[in-house]
C-alpha cells in the first residue's frame, strides 16, 4: 500500500502553522507514539497502538499534558521535494510480523510509484486500512534524524538497566535475558524493544509479569513504576548475596570457652537466642562473633554478612590473607 504526501500546495488543517504537530486543544484527543514519534487522532483508531510501528509505548496528549518533544525537524526536510517519501512495500509486509525488525523508509528509498498528491483531503489511507494525518511521511525522516539516535540510546540504557538489575538476582535456572536485546545500528528497533522488554518481564524468575494484565503494554506512569519497583525489589528484597559454601565450610569450629563469653559472663547464640554452655562447639567468624554452626550456616547461606556486625566472611577471608589484619585480641564479643 502506498501513501502519498500532498505537495507544496497543501491546505490542510494544520496549514498556516508549523506542520509537525496535531492539535490536541480542540476537543480531539491526539495520541503520540514515543517509539517513532508518530501521532494520530484517537477517534481514528480505537487501539492504543501506533499505526506506524505497532509500538505500544504511546501516550494520550491533552492540552495540559504534551510529552511531544519540541520540534526537531530541520526545515530543509520539510520542503516539498523531500515530502514524497512513501511507505516502502517491505514496511507494509513487516507490519504483519510485528516481532521482526522493521526497516523504515529512509531518504535513500526512492519513491516506487509517484502519484499525484491528493488535494483538499487532510487524511490519507495508511497501512492496516487506517488513515494517517497530513504530516505523516516526514516522520520516517524525522525518525532517522532524531529517533534513531534516541532509540539506540534508549535501548542501550534499558539493556544496561535490566542487566544491572538481573545480574545479581539471577539464580541457576533463570533464563538469561541479555540476548534478547540485540539492536543493530542502522535498523529500527522500536518494535523489538517493546516486545523484548515485555518478553523479559514475562520471563522473570518469580513471575513479575503478572503485574501487567495484558503483557504487551503499560499505559500509565504508575504501571511502569510498578514494573520498575518490582524489578528493583526482586534484587533488593533478597538483601546481600549468599556467602560461598566453601567460605562457610572453612570457618573454624571452637569449643566455647570463658574468654568468648559476653560481658555478663553469659553465652547466648544471638540468632536463636538460646543459651550456650561452655564447651559447646560453635562456629567463629573472622570478626570473632560466634554462633551455633547451624544458625550461622542458615544465615550465611542466604547472606554473606555477620549476623551481628554485618562484616562479610568472604571479605574477611581476603583481608585475613594480609598479615596483621586479622582481629587479634577481640575475643569476648560474644552475642
Amino acid at each position: 500500500m502506498n501513501i502519498r504526501r500532498r505537495g507544496s500546495d497543501a491546505t490542510g488543517m494544520d496549514a498556516g502553522r508549523r506542520q509537525t504537530r496535531l492539535d490536541a486543544t480542540h476537543g480531539r484527543q491526539v495520541v503520540f507514539c514515543h517509539a517513532c514519534l508518530n501521532e494520530w487522532y484517537r477517534n481514528e483508531r480505537a487501539e492504543l497502538t501506533c499505526p506506524c510501528c505497532i509500538g505500544d509505548v504511546v501516550e494520550i496528549i491533552s492540552p495540559g499534558f504534551d510529552p511531544r518533544p519540541a520540534s526537531q525537524i530541520p526545515e530543509e526536510l520539510q520542503t516539498p521535494s523531500r515530502q514524497n517519501a512513501q511507505w516502502a512495500p517491505e514496511l507494509a509486509h513487516a507490519h504483519a510480523h510485528a516481532h521482526e525488525t522493521v526497516h523504515m523508509p529512509t531518504e535513500d528509498d526512492q519513491p516506487i510509484s509517484p502519484s499525484p498528491p491528493y488535494e483538499h483531503e487532510p487524511w490519507y489511507p495508511g497501512p492496516n486500512g487506517l488513515y494517517v494525518g497530513p504530516n505523516h511521511a516526514p516522520r520516517g525522516l524525522r525518525r532517522r534524524l532524531s529517533g534513531e539516535a534516541a532509540m539506540n540510546d534508549l535501548a542501550a540504557g534499558m539493556q544496561a538497566f535490566l542487566e544491572h538489575i538481573l545480574r545479581d538476582g539471577s539464580r541457576p535456572g533463570a533464563a538469561p535475558f541479555q540476548a534478547t536485546f540485540s539492536l543493530q545500528r542502522g535498523q529500527y528497533g522500536t518494535i523489538d524493544i517493546a516486545n523484548h522488554f515485555n518478553h523479559a518481564i514475562t520471563n522473570l524468575p518469580n513471575g513479575a509479569g503478572g503485574l501487567a494484565p495484558n503483557l504487551d503494554a503499560v499505559y500509565s506512569q504508575q504501571a511502569m513504576d510498578r514494573i520498575i519497583s518490582q524489578l528493583m525489589n526482586q534484587r533488593g528484597s533478597d538483601g546481600p548475596p549468599p556467602a560461598l559454601a566453601s567460605d562457610i565450610a572453612a570457618l573454624p569450629i571452637k569449643k566455647l570457652d570463658e574468654e568468648m563469653l559476653g560481658p555478663g559472663g553469659k553465652g547466648e547464640c544471638s540468632i536463636c537466642m538460646d543459651d550456650v554452655e561452655i564447651g559447646t562447639e560453635v562456629v567463629v567468624l573472622h570478626c570473632n562473633h560466634w554462633f551455633h554452626k547451624e544458625c550461622a550456616s542458615r544465615w550465611l547461606n542466604e547472606h554473606d554478612t555477620c549476623p551481628i556486625c554485618r562484616k562479610a566472611i568472604g571479605e574477611a577471608t581476603a583481608v585475613n590473607d594480609v598479615p596483621g589484619a586479622s582481629g587479634f585480641g577481640r575475643a569476648g564479643q560474644a552475642g
Partner: peptide, 8 residues
C-alpha cells in the same frame, strides 16, 4: 530493610 536486617 532487607539490605540492613540482621538476625541479631
Amino acid at each position: 530493610k532487607s539490605e540492613s536486617w540482621k538476625p541479631s
